[in-house]
Design a protein around this nucleic acid. Structure first.
Lengths: 196, 196
DNA sequence: CCTTGTCCCGACCGATCGTTCGGTTACTCT
DNA sequence: AGAGTAACCGAACGATCGGTCGGGACAAGG
């Protein structure tokens, strides 16, 4: 390879360290001093790789948002019966949340204090609306119960899926992403009650 | 009344202002200067009513935790078939979340940076375990599906309920707490799919 | 009138915030 | 060997952090 493997930081490798610290302490609760200690380089050295703290946040939430929006472009999310497209999107959301866990975690905790955070919140709303339309279509097809308002149901389902970031950890012996995705799909569509 | 109505702050009224700001900006993102501006008094005056920033946090999360734990002491949560007690607890959780919304919101966002936050996280775990045992009992009774692990199902259901704090707002013309509680119970136990 | 206590204030404290700057090391290329 | 540059560092910047301090305004009780 022309570019030999570096033992120094790149913006990407530094990002992976920073996102971990952000998720541990919260973005506002993390100082550049914390980051420098976690990365093993001095505080000022960080600025050789990235423009500042907020750029790290922007890179992280962008990565998470790109992963989520990519789902909607996949074939199974675009063609077919609405309820089946919805099930596919729900399953893929769980997979993206688990595979990009630290980045999505950070995205879901953004509060809106800076321009970057407000931009992230806006894109999140866009994504939510796209999925809500899918659910509305499935309700129009009669494949989804009509006694719960679409907007409310969307929010509750998103709440269940997004809660993954609060407890899922890719442990070696723990449950896998597939297992979690199966459980989410079963509960979202079938509910908790024993099937008769 | 012996105690005439005050037009000045008490620790409680100051708390209600502080919790709003905490939820807007995040606890770490809120400075005492922010609080003083929102309360309309000087920064130093705040210390006349409370010991400091962390005491405001402790009071807030205590109030939320007390509300949640009180559910488990109610009669319908203690006697009866496990699945019915579970349904009652789920419904009451939604009611407490909506009635004590700002306090529970703050509780669900603590990260564990200080002793107060770690104590709050510990009590939250206690509560979760209590509800998980209820779900386990319902599964043992055969009233709840056995093909999804109890621990996993508990976390997902908690995720759906707790997500209320991210979007529920007690608007005048918006949906009421009862309406939300009904929807949560229907979705948790019955699922999204149209009932045949 | 004077005391007492509540409520509040401006000024200030040391510490820490995110960021900048001048300079040093160490590796690459010619 | 010498030049160029990527990677890094310690020291310091102004700003802001949570919190302290001495005292002023004001109402109640004597």
């Amino acid at each position: 390879m022309t570019t030999a493997k570096r033992d120094t930081y790149t913006p990407e490798t530094l990002l992976s360290v920073a996102v971990q610290v952000f998720n541990d302490r919260g973005y506002d609760g993390t100082s550049m001093e914390h980051l420098s200690r976690a990365a093993g380089i001095s505080k000022s050295s960080i600025y050789h790789h990235v423009a500042g703290k907020e750029e790290l946040l922007r890179r992280a939430v962008s990565r998470a948002l790109d992963g989520l929006f990519a789902i909607l472009d996949e074939e199974h999310a675009r063609v077919g019966r609405a309820v089946e497209r919805l099930e596919y999107v729900v399953r893929r959301m769980v997979e993206v949340l688990t595979s990009e866990l630290p980045y999505v975690t950070l995205l879901l905790r953004v509060r809106g204090n800076t321009d970057t955070e407000r931009w992230a919140l806006e894109r999140r709303r866009d994504f939510d609306h796209r999925v809500a339309e899918l659910l509305k279509a499935a309700a129009a097809d009669g494949d989804v119960r009509g006694d719960v308002e679409v907007r409310l149901a969307t929010r509750l389902v998103f709440g269940m899926i997004n809660s993954l970031v609060e407890w899922y950890r890719p442990d070696a012996r723990g449950m896998g992403a597939r297992e979690v995705a199966d459980a989410v799909v079963v509960l979202v569509f079938g509910g908790l009650r024993r099937e008769s």
